[in-house]
């Protein structure tokens, strides 16, 4: 099984995160055609209906565009791509600050540490 999935949480949400990460990191570029649901399901080792659900949800976010006859594509809409990057950044920063707080650093400390790093 190539994809690391946590079976404690809904699988389709994790698939959405993985596909988003692949788009942000450039594995899938804007305008790229995505593999078929079946191919992705085999690759991830998940039920095809679950993969289908994740794809439909990604379509709803606008990140993925479905073309009835040709399959699914990554959006070329810069606004959507930017907002996904911003969401990801916020998640990472929130986690980072939380971790640092747990280690006993204040936000001011962290700012200084990052500057000097």
């Amino acid at each position: 099984m190539a994809w690391k999935l946590d079976t404690k949480k809904p699988i389709y949400l994790q698939i959405m995160d993985e596909v988003k990460a692949r788009i942000v990191s450039g594995t899938y570029s804007p305008g790229d055609k995505l593999p078929s649901v079946r191919e992705l399901a085999v690759e991830a080792g998940v039920n095809p209906n679950t993969m289908q659900k994740a794809m439909s949800e990604l379509e709803r976010t606008g990140l993925v565009i479905s073309n009835r006859t040709q399959g699914r594509f990554v959006t070329e809409d810069e606004k959507v791509l930017k907002s996904i990057r911003k969401d990801n950044l916020e998640t990472v920063l929130n986690d980072f600050f939380k971790t640092m707080e747990n280690l006993g650093y204040t936000r001011e400390d962290v700012k200084k540490i990052v500057k000097d790093y």
Binding site: D6, T7, K9, P10, Y12, K53
Partner: peptide
């Protein structure tokens, strides 16, 4: 299984 995971925060195995 997805509804159960969402509901219980558990894997089906757990």
């Amino acid at each position: 299984v997805e509804a159960l995971r969402m509901d219980k925060n558990m894997s089906i195995d757990e």
